[in-house]
Computed example of a mutant assay.
Amino acid sequence: MVLVTGFPKLLARRVAGALASRGPVVLLVPEEHAEPAADFAATLPDARVLTGDVASMHLGLSTAEYRDLSADCSEIVHVADSSNVGADKPALERENVEGTRTVLELAQDCRGLRRFTHFSTVFVSGDRVGVIAEDELSAGQSFRSFYEQSKFEAELLVRRAMGQLPCTVLRPAFIVGDSRTGEIDRFDGPYIVAGLLLSTRLQVPLPLPGDGVAPLNVVPIDFVAAAAAAIHHDPRAVGRTFQIVDPNPSSSRRVYERVAEREGKKLPRLSLGYKLTDTLLKLPGLERLTREQRMAFATVNHLSFYSSRNTLEILDGTGISCPPIEGYLDKLIEYAQKARNKGT
């Protein structure tokens, strides 16, 4: 039986769906989401719901529930986290660090555990630039947000547990909508940048930061779920880290120019470095941008290239590969526009 945390996140639902064909699934779900979780579980071949809290002792379960779970659980996929870069440090530490610590404690108590798979993020690299390998974590980097720092600290916990537990770490790039439908449950990061670049409410035209050569490190959610399931089930993945990325990412400028073209607009050709961009964001009309919006601009201007050698090794021969964004960008735009029109 596999335990999946993170509901109601779309990623948790997609991962649970990808794992369901291999055996029973248990969803750990906050109490306020129990009803929709039960509805979702009913769509899977063999799934049930446990209400709890990843950051509480024994996951917020009763003594009997925790005892039964630790006896029956052979696999854990830890998807739950807070990805809100605008959240304060205590909230992020509770969900991302303490939540990971608590789920690792469950893993220690599972007598028949075969795999613990932890969802991290490529952004544990912080402000590092250049090529970043999968086996690298602590490299003297600084962090641009409490979110990055909390995910780094959570991954450290998992790395330290690798000597005692069969752990695997997954580091997806920024997750965007399904490559076939555009479906996504959160319009942040690259979506925020697109919205601001095309906004008619800004008092000054907003250029794309930098010269636009920085790669847009995004991956569609259907690829992430399929890759995660394949890696999770592969015995070669134990004790290793996998960056789930587009091995040939397009530049930020190329992607956003295409987005602008669809709206009948052109991006300013002005090129600014990160520090000048930060100054620009403080100009009248822009100084009210949120922390999340500022972070989104910093991300698309970052010259980081994530190696995915381990991921490519495991996925070789599976038929699972990351599609180029040019092939599904229209789907992302259409889905975002429909959601905006609905007011979601």
Rank of each mutant, 00 (worst) to 15 (best):
Q337K: 07
L69E: 03
R14P: 01
F146C: 04
V238M: 03
L198D: 01
A71H: 11
L44C: 09
S308K: 04
V103G: 09
F7W: 08
I192Q: 05
L315I: 08
R269A: 14
A139C: 07
F123C: 10
V29Q: 03
A47F: 00
L10G: 12
A18P: 03
L202F: 15
V176M: 05
L272Y: 08
I231C: 00
L267G: 04
V85K: 05
A47L: 02
P24M: 02
E292F: 07
V255G: 05
D178L: 06
I221N: 08
K151L: 08
S304N: 09
L11S: 02
T51Y: 09
G140R: 04
L197Y: 07
I175D: 01
N310V: 12
A237R: 01
R171Q: 00
T181L: 09
S142F: 05
P284T: 06
A87G: 08
L11D: 00
G285P: 05
G17R: 01
D188K: 13
R236K: 10
R128E: 02
F146H: 08
V218Q: 05
G23W: 12
G163A: 11
V158A: 02
A87Y: 00
L156A: 09
V85R: 08
A230Y: 00
A91V: 15
G212R: 01
R186K: 11
P268N: 11
V4R: 04
A38K: 07
L106V: 08
F116C: 03
D278P: 04
A260P: 01
V85F: 07
L106Y: 05
L106E: 03
L197S: 06
V4H: 03
I192K: 06
R14W: 09
L196D: 03
D246M: 08
R128C: 10
Q108N: 14
G239K: 13
S74V: 14
E148D: 10
T299G: 07
V97E: 05
T279W: 10
L312Q: 13
L289P: 11
P172W: 00
A339Y: 09
